[in-house]
């Protein structure tokens, strides 16, 4: 994402959100809209205040993030593993590649019914689903990154007498790092999408999470809560991206990448 690094900040970008807020305010004040359908901004703020104050937001956030990151870690590890295997071994690619590329085409959410039936309505099936969603982009990007390691680089490694393990940690992984990081970033985005999706589609009784909060808001027709929940979900998505990019820059700098 191209965050503006320019010295002079361009404030024109603030105009659309400001207009939107103004219209929202005006709509409520002037009675253009039905306030149960479009609650005024102050009502959303009140909901936000309540949820922040009572700690409910943090509990829901922590539960969702724990699922998200747990599933992401599992899926990313498996994805890097398979990606490296497919990248270094022609045999593995021939044996596993076609199946992998076919299964990838099954739309993510189509796994939910089977997973939830096999693993039950609990966090286990949600985490596995999140792992699956992170797995594909990471595996694919890792595979492409590793495949991009040139023969010449392998030659050098052979000349230096690298062991298989050294080849992996000193050559393959560093060389493929930019692609793997891109894949991880995509995996993180998908994992968050899957977390919210799973919380919507697999509502378990008494569970907490941002998605569950929104579902409750909709069931109670509390539109302010739905809006607030949606903003929180989006905010987490943005924050995850930010944190990831910071880590990525640090990691690539540590690797000695010129950019």
């Amino acid at each position: 994402m191209t965050t503006s690094h320019s010295a002079r900040r361009d404030y024109r970008g603030l105009v659309p959100p400001a207009l939107l807020l103004l219209a929202w305010f005006a709509a409520g004040r002037l009675g253009w809209t039905n306030p149960t359908l479009i609650p005024p901004p102050e009502q959303v703020l009140a909901v936000a205040w309540h949820y922040l104050g009572s700690g409910e937001l943090f509990r829901a956030l922590a539960a969702s993030l724990a699922r998200d990151l747990g599933g992401f870690a599992l899926g990313a590890l498996a994805g890097i593993g398979l990606g490296v295997l497919l990248g270094v071994s022609r045999w593995a690619e021939r044996l596993l590649g076609p199946t992998f590329h076919t299964l990838k085409q099954i739309s993510l959410f189509a796994w939910i019914p089977l997973l939830s039936i096999w693993l039950g309505y609990n966090d286990g099936s949600r985490v596995v689903f999140i792992a699956v969603s992170a797995f594909y982009p990471v595996a694919l990007a890792t595979f492409e990154g590793v495949r991009g390691v040139t023969r010449a680089q392998f030659e050098v490694a052979r000349v230096h007498g690298f062991t298989a393990r050294q080849r992996l940690t000193r050559l393959i992984l560093p060389a493929a790092a930019p692609q793997i990081l891109t894949g991880l970033n995509l995996g993180l985005v998908y994992a968050w999408l899957a977390t919210i999706g799973a919380e919507f589609l697999l509502p378990a009784y008494g569970d907490i999470g941002l998605g569950d909060t929104v579902i409750r808001g909709r069931a109670a027709f509390n539109v302010a809560l739905v809006i607030f929940g949606m903003l929180a979900i989006g905010g987490v998505g943005v924050a995850l991206n930010r944190v990831f990019h910071r880590l990525e820059r640090r990691l690539l700098r540590w690797r000695g990448d010129p950019r």
Partner: peptide, 18 residues
């Protein structure tokens, strides 16, 4: 662009209840 880039990072399924 700034608004778009921000909103684009919201997961689509999050919009559905609204």
């Amino acid at each position: 662009l700034p608004s778009f880039e921000l909103v684009a990072q919201f997961p689509v399924v999050g919009w559905v209840p609204l």
